[in-house]
Design a protein around this nucleic acid. Structure first.
Lengths: 326, 326
DNA sequence: GTGAAAGCGCTAACAG
DNA sequence: CTGTTAGCGCTTTCAC
């Protein structure tokens, strides 16, 4: 029995007699044989592995998405390599991953990577299969899976307006991040179209971490006049904010309403339970993985950039309430 | 210039003339050449990749450890493949990863995998480099990196005793998990040695999720007599518990003290800020990755199982207080 | 210090 | 349907 036959029996059982198939499986069982993937990758020029680049695996927002990606990839027979905190303004290590045949495609989950760098990655001659997720560049020359951040931010702000708030502030995300910009834009759009007051000092510099939210809270506490409600760029910032104002005796939502963004697992169990815009993270991850693998396996011609946009959902819980009468 | 020379210039620059080295780097730069890792892996019989098997990437406890692992691995030139939710009572897919040369070693982060299965993985002929982290089997025949859970649980319980509590309950982790058993044992040991009352109905079935904590809360609320303090098996259970009793008007720590385990990022910002036993997660991940790579690169003879045990630290915050005088 | 050549384990093309 | 053979790109003897 030749090696070729074994190979066929394993990868294309239908091209082999029933009898051969049996003999092969028997032999495999007895000898404990396993396919050598390196050899296979070398021969096929494909690693059946995708690389997922994240800014921070430690963050539950990303790790949930990664979870969904991993599941979908496994379903289609792909492994998942992770590259964390890679965005050092340097895409070369990433590039190496495929050029070197370790991964067949890249799934990028980061709003802060430089656009020029990105385009360099996809440029010929090696045009690598790339999906950008959670990044919000319009008319980008690559496939994109994301949620409509600006619209969702607008919705979040409208929720506060509907409750009767007119003095509304915002905790921004990190500077230079596309999501930050989109969410701020949605926030401003909502205030604008409602004719509500926009005060520069109520738009606080923040970030995506709880500490950033806490810092924003301290800034706000120093203001002469304070908003009665806050739209935070994500749940972590919202939680850090609420927690910090509590130290000064301000109770959410009695003294100030706060709405977050993402709907992390903690949102439901926080005290108060956090009102937030839920992003469909599992769907995001699954779709992104699907799209990437399609791209990898599809004909190179089929690579017209597509943009998937998922929508977020308002989840009303206990951290928002009508403003306290004064 | 032969391919052999290029190979040498790239991997062992010292074995080549200065001039050759320059010519090679120049050529590399001009042509955009990259090493084909599959071919290299095939030739060297090593993938410079480790596989990390986790029960749940979505859980911040694990994702932080994964972060540290990834960082250490990258530092030593290794990639990280992730396998999530793999523990289906079936280690074969895992086994395939190395036997198939996709990964050179396994880092296992799971307290619930069956011991017999584990030993099967390390058994000859293929004895694969394996590190078990956060798993607490004593005298195991493989390397282990963990924290002393029983002792830490005892410490946590002692903290409650010191505050003056004598009616103390426990929310257990998932059944069949080593960590669950160890933490419960430590809890009981502390009560025992303090001569405090141990009530079976105060030892609640729980789990590692916030929902599990909430469920335990509902069970406890139905009791005629309630404990005045709770040691929860982890922070998530603690948070779910606190959040749920709040719905019934019970305030932590006024009506009940709660101590958690892990010190997740949220612990500090929760309301009340959570008292907890901090596990050194970064150190855990780093050490585990280090040990695994040492194992992979070390002589096969050097494989005497070593056990690293890190210690946890009591972090006192606002969720524990003396019992309310009655 | 450098080149020629073999071979890691696999799959695809081609004959039979 | 099965066997033979070539070659994926690399590293490593072994000569020179």
């Amino acid at each position: 029995m030749s090696t070729a036959t074994v190979s066929r029996a394993l990868s294309r059982p239908e091209r082999v007699t029933e009898a051969t198939r049996e003999r092969v499986s028997e032999a495999v069982r007895v000898t404990g044989y396993t396919l050598n993937q390196s050899a296979r990758s070398l021969r096929l020029q494909s690693a059946r592995t995708i690389l997922v680049a994240l800014p921070d695996i430690g963050n539950p927002f990303f790790s949930t998405i990664l979870d969904a990606i991993e599941r979908e990839a496994a379903r289609r027979g792909y492994g998942v390599l992770v590259a964390n905190r890679f965005a050092r303004g340097d895409t070369d290590p990433l590039r190496d991953y495929f050029l070197s045949n370790r991964a067949d495609g890249l799934l990028l989950l980061d709003g802060s990577i430089d656009r020029a760098q990105l385009e360099a990655l996809t440029r010929a001659p090696t045009s690598l299969p790339l999906i950008v997720a959670c990044e919000a560049i319009a008319d980008a020359p690559f496939h994109t899976v994301r949620t409509d951040n600006a619209y969702a931010a607008e919705q979040a702000t409208r929720h506060l307006l509907r409750l009767g708030h007119s003095r509304i502030g915002h905790i921004k995300g990190p500077a230079g991040n596309v999501l930050t910009a989109e969410r701020e834009a949605g926030f401003l759009a909502a205030l604008c179209s409602a004719g509500a007051e926009i005060r520069a000092e109520w738009v606080l510099h923040g970030g995506f971490s709880m500490d950033d939210g806490a810092r924003a809270a301290r800034t706000m506490l120093d203001l002469q006049e304070r908003p009665t409600a806050i739209f935070a760029t994500n749940d972590e910032a919202a939680i850090g904010f609420i927690s910090e104002i509590a130290r000064s005796g301000l109770i959410c939502p009695r003294d100030m309403s706060v709405i977050g963004f993402d709907d992390l697992g903690i949102a439901e169990h926080f005290l108060p339970p956090l009102t937030t815009m839920r992003q469909p993270r599992e769907a995001l991850g699954r779709l992104a993985a699907e799209a990437l693998i399609d791209l990898i396996e599809g004909a190179p011609g089929k690579r017209v950039p597509r943009q998937f946009v998922l929508s977020s959902q308002l989840i009303v819980r206990g951290s928002t309430a009508p403003p306290r009468p004064r």
